[in-house]
């Protein structure tokens, strides 16, 4: 049975697409047949981060409109055996997505033997975001440690548990909180909310904390999901989160300021 997981946030630019690419890659690297769908119709971001934009022939909307088969539109990832990308259309508007169309694509992915389907949601709480979350079994709610992002995540959690198909059936969507762009030094200075504050406000289970990390920008410029960068803090934190998503117990790390190297400390003292 395929698990449908939406990556959503309400607020824009908090790291949904970065997270979708990392989590789908991480699941595939662990041997699970995984598809990642870009629901951000009109913008097309995921294919850039996954470095397959030049291989896009057909997209999600083409499949929904019957202009191409799902198999024709799915792009096989170059680095990962088990990973497939269904890109968004750059030219259509968001209303091209219909409940029936999305459901049909998800059912076909199940029939093709996919174990995980990751849905990269657009920002906001409008049609596109609703389509991305409606069929979800689980949700990764991405929040940055600041008040407006947390408030939007709260709102999305409310929508998930009242408007999704699971909610309509009287069931629960499994919630996972992912705090991204976490900067322990700024938290210590009181410029950002701490993990405990965010957890308390949202009252939901913490999947992981991804530190603010230069490696993310580098990775997206190179078109390599950051989880492949196994030396980087963000890469390691995403790998931990994927492990937790599949049921492993892994301790949280990168929650406190990085230890300065001896050189940096000496330098600071003499400065």
């Amino acid at each position: 049975m395929a698990k449908i997981i939406v990556v959503t946030s309400g607020k824009g630019g908090v790291g949904k697409t970065t997270t979708s690419s990392a989590i789908s890659t991480g699941l595939a690297l662990r041997g699970h047949k995984t598809a990642v769908i870009d629901f951000d119709i009109g913008l097309r971001n995921l294919d850039l981060i996954m470095n397959c934009e030049r291989r896009v022939v057909y997209d999600f909307v083409n499949v929904i409109n019957g202009e191409a088969t799902l198999k024709q539109a799915l792009i096989k990832d170059k680095r990962c055996e088990n990973l497939f990308i269904l890109p968004a259309s750059q030219t259509r508007d968001k209303d091209a997505l219909t409940k029936e169309g999305v459901e049909q694509v998800l059912n076909e992915l199940k029939e093709l033997g996919f174990e995980y389907v990751i849905c990269d949601s657009p920002a906001g709480i409008e049609h596109g975001a609703f389509m991305a979350l409606y069929f979800a079994d689980e949700a990764v709610v991405v929040a940055n440690p600041e008040v407006s992002s947390v408030r939007d995540s709260d709102r999305i959690l409310g929508i998930l548990q009242s408007k999704s198909r699971k909610a309509e059936l009287g069931e629960n969507v499994t919630e996972h909180l992912l705090i991204t762009r976490y900067d322990p030094e700024r938290v210590a200075r009181g410029e950002m909310l701490g993990v405990a504050d965010v957890e308390e406000i949202l009252a939901t289970k913490l999947l992981g904390v991804i530190p603010e990390c230069q490696s993310v920008l580098k990775a997206s410029n190179q078109g390599v999901p950051v989880i492949h960068d196994t030396e980087s803090r963000a890469g390691k934190a995403y790998a931990d989160a994927v492990a937790r998503l599949t049921g492993e117990q892994v301790e949280h790390r990168f929650l406190t300021p990085e230890h300065k190297s001896l050189f940096q400390r000496l330098f600071r003292r003499s400065a």
Partner: peptide, 23 residues
């Protein structure tokens, strides 16, 4: 939890919430 944007009305009686009511 009762999340941002949600509204709950207990008509004719009391309301008990066993969690937080969000901003």
């Amino acid at each position: 939890p009762i999340r941002s944007g949600q509204q709950i009305y207990a008509r004719g009686g009391d309301l008990v919430v066993m969690a937080s009511v969000s901003a």
